[in-house]
């Protein structure tokens, strides 16, 4: 059994995996470690595989799939990638397909990573930034997988010349209006700014959220299905959910109008003919 070290990046794994493949090391002969599985790993020097030269042919699509799955934080992060790569290079093309046990896990991870990127695009909530931060908008997010650097490019398309940053418990990104800067360790100051409450700016949004909800259709099960509760902490509207459900279920009202409008004075409008 040989232990191989990855610096936590796909590019780093790819280089090590290339050498291992060229030397004909089979998946069961290898043990993969990175900073997560072995903290303090990179404080010491490490024994690298001796460099070999040679050519490997790997389909571009497989490489893309491996890169995507590499963002998944979980057990056997690097060994799964190597096993799939090994099997495909040795002629078992089904190893990357969803019908295969390894392929199924690979595809599941790709799906989870894409889903988490989608969560970032959907549920990040920006708020105006304090002047000293030298950005216009900032946000806090706790992604499950290492998607931030890759997935946050979406916001440079979306926000034009606005400057912004996203802080997480691990890494952070900053868009200065021209370029995206990724910090593998999020600056502490960003984390402080990004977790400040922003109650004022959220009032309009919360009013919208309450009003656009139709109490006659209340369906907490469907809500949970689409919006897992682990994501609620990112959303200023989520504090309203228990109360809205409660009112809809136990209130005296059985129609669809927002309860806050219930006793407001209304205005009937005369038919057009009667004005003539």
């Amino acid at each position: 059994m040989r232990t191989l070290y990855v610096d936590g990046t796909f590019a780093g794994w790819r280089e090590v995996a290339r050498q291992a493949l060229l030397q004909g090391l089979a998946p069961h002969q290898l043990h993969w470690q990175d900073a997560d599985s072995c903290p303090g790993l990179f404080d010491h020097g490490q024994a690298a595989l001796p460099a070999s030269t040679g050519h490997l042919r790997v389909p571009a699509q497989l490489l893309q799939q491996l890169e995507c799955a590499a963002r998944y934080r979980g057990e056997a992060r690097w060994s799964l990638l190597y096993r799939v790569l090994w099997r495909v290079v040795h002629g078992q093309r089904s190893a990357a397909l969803a019908g295969d046990p390894d392929g199924s896990e690979l595809q599941r991870r790709i799906k989870a990573v894409r889903r988490e990127a989608h969560h970032l695009h959907a549920f990040v909530r920006f708020q105006p930034a304090p002047a000293v931060s030298e950005v216009d908008l900032l946000a806090w997010f706790e992604p499950r997988h290492d998607i931030l650097a890759w997935a946050s490019r979406h916001f440079s398309e979306r926000l034009g010349q606005q400057r912004w940053l996203i802080a997480t418990p691990a890494d952070g990104v900053h868009w200065d209006g021209q370029r995206l800067h990724h910090h593998r360790h999020c600056p502490r100051q960003w984390q402080v700014w990004a977790t400040q409450p922003d109650s004022e700016g959220q009032a309009l949004w919360q009013a919208y959220y309450s009003s656009t909800f139709n109490p006659a259709r209340v369906n907490p099960r469907a809500l949970k299905q689409h919006l897992p509760s682990r994501l609620w902490r990112h959303l200023p509207e989520s504090t309203l959910i228990p109360q809205l459900i409660n009112q809809a279920r136990h209130g005296a009202q059985h129609h669809s109008q927002a309860p806050v409008l219930l006793r407001r004075p209304g205005k009937r409008i005369a038919p057009p003919d009667s004005k003539d």
């Binding site: 989608h118 695009h121 959907a122 549920f123 979406h154 398309e157 979306r158 926000l159 034009g160 606005q162 959220y209 656009t212 909800f213 139709n214 109490p215 259709r217 209340v218 369906n219 907490p220 099960r221 469907a222 809500l223 299905q225 689409h226 919006l227 959303l235 509207e237 959910i241 809205l244 459900i245 809809a248």
Partner: peptide
């Protein structure tokens, strides 16, 4: 301001799902 790329994004869900 703004971008579109063909795919839609659901930014939140109300308690009617």
């Amino acid at each position: 301001l703004g971008s579109t790329n063909g795919a839609g994004i659901c930014h939140s869900f109300t308690p009617d799902g």
